[in-house]
Design a protein around this nucleic acid. Sequence first.
RNA 1: GGGCGGAUGGCGAAAUUGGCAGACGCGAUAGCCUUAGGAGCUAUUGGGGCAACCCUUGGAGGUUCAAAUCCUCUUCCGCCCACCA
Length: 799
Amino acid sequence: MHYDFKKVEEKWQKHWQKTHAFRAQADPKRKKYYLLEMFPYPSGKIHMGHVRNYTIGDVASRFKTLEGYNVMHPMGFDAFGQPAENAAIKNKTKPGDWTRKCIKEMETELKKMGFSYDWEREVSTCQSDYYQWNQWIFLKMLERGLAYRKASQVNWCPSCATTLANEEVIEGGCWRCHTKVEQKDLEQWYLKITEYKERLLEDLSQLKDWPPRVLAMQNNWIGKSSGVDIYFRLENSDKLISVFTTRVDTIFGATYIVLAPEHPLVLDLIKGTRQEKEALEFIKKVASESKIVRAASDVKKEGVFTGSFAINPVNNEKVPVWIADYVLMEYGTGAIMAVPTHDGRDFLFAKEHKLPMRIVISPKDGSLKSAEELTQAYEGNGVQINSGEFNGLDNREAKTKIAQWMEARGIGKIQTHWRLRDWLISRQRYWGTPIPVIYCPACGIVPVPCQDLPIELPADAPFTGEGGSPLGKVKKFVEVKCPKCKANARRETDTMATFFDSSWYFLRFCSPKFKAGPFDVNEAKYWMTVDQYIGGIEHAILHLLYSRFFTKFFQDLKMVDFSEPFDKLLTQGMVLKDGEVMSKSRGNIVDPDSMIKNYGADALRLFILFAAPPETELEWEERGLEGAYKFLNRVWRIQENLKDDADPQVLKALHRTIKKVGADFSEFKFNTAIASLMELTNVIYQSGADKQVFSALIIMLSPIVPHFAEELWQILGHKESIFKTGWPKYDPQLLIEEKVELVIQVNGKLRSKIEVPCGISEDKLKELVFKDEKLAPWLEGKTPKKFILVPQKLVNIVI
RNA sequence: GGGCGGAUGGCGAAAUUGGCAGACGCGAUAGCCUUAGGAGCUAUUGGGGCAACCCUUGGAGGUUCAAAUCCUCUUCCGCCCACCA
């Protein structure tokens, strides 16, 4: 006899929808719980990664509901982006139509999984009632100088025909299509995220419930690095070259300096020198190379001498000035002092070009004899040598002393450099939020007045796939009057990067229909912050950093009174098949929909939670899914054989399980919670159970297998949804054991076990232990040296 | 090169945070039931040994009465960042 999962699941999905079972309403009298999973891009089909992410969230959400919280659990769609445009070109549809169709399909699939979303709060970022607030936020940022336009070298994906943010360049390729990224000079819109760098870094310490891994990645990305800017004066000139170093302790070993090929001084330096031609050729060559090729670490370090010299300010030594490809203009000052003896890159370069070296840090063991014998740079710590008045100091101590000494003499400045760059947000694409700006020949860049929002995306743009953004070809979109002087003007045709859309959607969910602003401040006050956020590790840098940035911006606008949006973060592991990530290109996709058809959504949910802890990778195993299905049938059969009473052993087991499962659920340890529930089921299967024990079992199962639990709950005679009952309470009295089994070790090895009353005194226990026959052969003729007792657990006799 | 994680049976994994290693499940083996089994039930299942026992958490040391867990060294794997000065 099998339970009819198809009928049961459909029945309860309809019931939940009809009764608005998951509608969330702010209620100041109740404690809220905001549970959020990262909303998906609507590709049309859900994949196992979605199933896993959203199942974890759903169990947490339903568990919190059972615990009595006022839970908000919303869902929406991150609906702008390139795939819609590609589909439009390919299938001769409109991106909007394609996206809306995909959203419909995806909603259906999510509903089939039985997720407890408040669908009345659904948002789609491609709808103007959402994206007009992107425009509003942009204008606020523009007003505060946080959005600006700048011409610079940008990452350009030739395949997508658009610019990319640094964060969107993965291993030198476009994050979407993996095409090799090129460099291009363009005028683009940026957000000044660097204005928030200190806060973004400092506030990481508030995030105690984030995975350390994510914190480390964010920390790395912001990349604060402290050191000293040192001023080298050019020989026969007043011009200064500023170099940045984190190893000022090695300054006396600086035997040459190196400029990035793009450094503004370079052209002056080489002008009229013998090396001019060679240098110009080199600069040209580097410029044509992408950053990516340049960054490949095994590439030989190339460079040319400028013909000029500079003066090392600490010892007035004359050092040659070089240009090399391994120095980057974007970082620090675009110039370095080279210390070949104590920096690996400088070492390689110096060897290649036969440049001088001098050891200035001597390791404690004195193993460094002479620079000539070095086969690699020594980057460790040691004692200062050849360093003037600093000789003999530990280099770490010298670092501070030299820095202060240089500052005092005006030859250097203690300085901090950051890795974080401003965020390039404009895209030469159609399917995104139009940037609300107008270019007027007379007034220049004119922001669209707030009352003119939204700037709607025209639905009838021509999709040919050629010649850049189709927006530029829509006359009635482009040709506008200047809001200031009413002259003929041109509308911005770039759209926003989609990461803009997702940087504040968690706030919109608090009041998704709000018309007077991006969100209702009062609703946000009640619901925010997000108590638990769940999503993939792939968003550890981009999305999470941007969301943190936006939140701080809203804090500055006094629209929220907190600085971090997400209290707890859980990054779920990937779903693998045969040890590899499931992907279309590998052809190893398992379609959730067919699994639902064969085993039901409940079995799928159960399996995916049981197979591994949420954070780790999960190996897909259809046999395991079958096992989950068998387990549900086993529980179903118990219901057909309920007794009038349960014996004390079963009751004890039940209360132990209630305690364990409650604790496990709170910590997202679903795999062990399920193991405990299976153990309890085994006990019940052996000894039988009454209605009460069985009820408790299915309440505990309900967050995991909600349809199954609702159905059994109804069969037991209840009229209300199982989620209206509370989480069962355990009776501490029942957890107290009278007797306990003690492990007896001799010299740390297990030799016997005895059962003793719980409150037994140590003397009594000793007596019992030494009477134990099993121990006799081990203790014979030996005198116990020590008797170690771990109460309720074990005894270890040392002989 | 830097950072962060990992490594436990044939497989996915547990281990109250230093106290019985392998819970729970998958798979396997044997038996029962069945017209049948991709159903159900019972038993066994880390390795060696007839047994008493011995061995076993990637490897080598160490601390401890006691180590999967702590320390040192080492090998391999994964992820992130990366000519970042």
